[in-house]
Design a protein around this nucleic acid. Structure first.
Length: 209
DNA sequence: TTCCAAGTCTCTCATTCTTT
DNA sequence: AAAGAATGAGAGACTTGGAA
């Protein structure tokens, strides 16, 4: 059966974005959209699905930069089924540490705990700082107040810098993990297909004999 | 304040479709 | 067939929000 072709306006409606957004994503993510004899883009169901995946990732807070790094994975799996999409979504959910309680402790959950720990640490830090500043004000010692404030500022900046660096490192790690999961999943599919094919061939040969 | 990412808007031109 | 509307392309300026 021939694959259906959609114009950009139809595709935009299906993906639920404006047509210029599709053009923008195409350019930014280096997606090679086929053209008809008029030079107009046409989108197949595969591309519609791909753009839906991209939109899905965008909604989960992924930047185009991050999505771009996942493009090889997304492109390899051109015929994503509903289950695939589910798998991807689940992976993202896990990676975002939204795992349900009954699920075993995943790396994402551990990561979440680290985040919580960092937040608690930050909260404690804030309380301590609050105490220091309050005391300084109570003492009404302007000089001391200034000194404390400057020390506190330095500490806050250092602490925030450290936490931000940690966060960035974790995010990068998360993107890598997600990409790896995608690749493994697709590899698994390919291997399963190859095994089925091999089995069929074996049966056929056996029958022939 | 400046820079950057991610859109968003506007303009012009080309092609196709519809109406008269 | 001609005119006008609709649709699409491409380019560049503009906006917005966040980070440095």
């Amino acid at each position: 059966m021939e694959e259906k072709h959609y114009m950009i306006s139809d595709a935009a409606k299906m993906v639920d974005v404006e047509s210029h957004v599709l053009r923008y994503w195409e350019e930014e993510l280096k997606i090679d959209i086929p053209r008809n004899e008029m030079g107009h883009r046409y989108y197949t169901d595969t591309y519609i699905h791909l753009f839906k995946e991209i939109k899905n990732l965008k909604e989960q807070g992924f930047l185009l930069k991050a999505i771009k790094t996942l493009m090889p994975g997304l492109m390899e799996g051109k015929s994503f089924s509903k289950e695939d999409s589910q798998t991807i979504s689940e992976t993202i959910v896990e990676e975002n540490a939204l795992a349900e309680p009954e699920k075993e402790k995943t790396a994402a959950l551990k990561e979440h705990e680290t985040n919580v720990c960092a937040e608690e640490k930050m909260e404690q830090f804030r309380l301590i700082l609050g105490g220091i500043v309050s005391r300084a004000i109570e003492d009404n010692n302007e000089v001391l107040g200034k000194e404390v404030s400057s020390r506190v500022s330095d500490s806050v900046i250092k602490e925030m810098d450290y936490l931000l660096r940690l966060k960035e490192e974790r995010e990068e790690e998360r993107y890598k993990k997600f990409d790896e999961v995608l690749r493994n999943y697709q590899k698994g599919n390919k291997e399963a297909a190859a095994a089925t094919e091999k089995k069929k061939l074996f049966k056929f040969r056996k029958k022939k004999k």
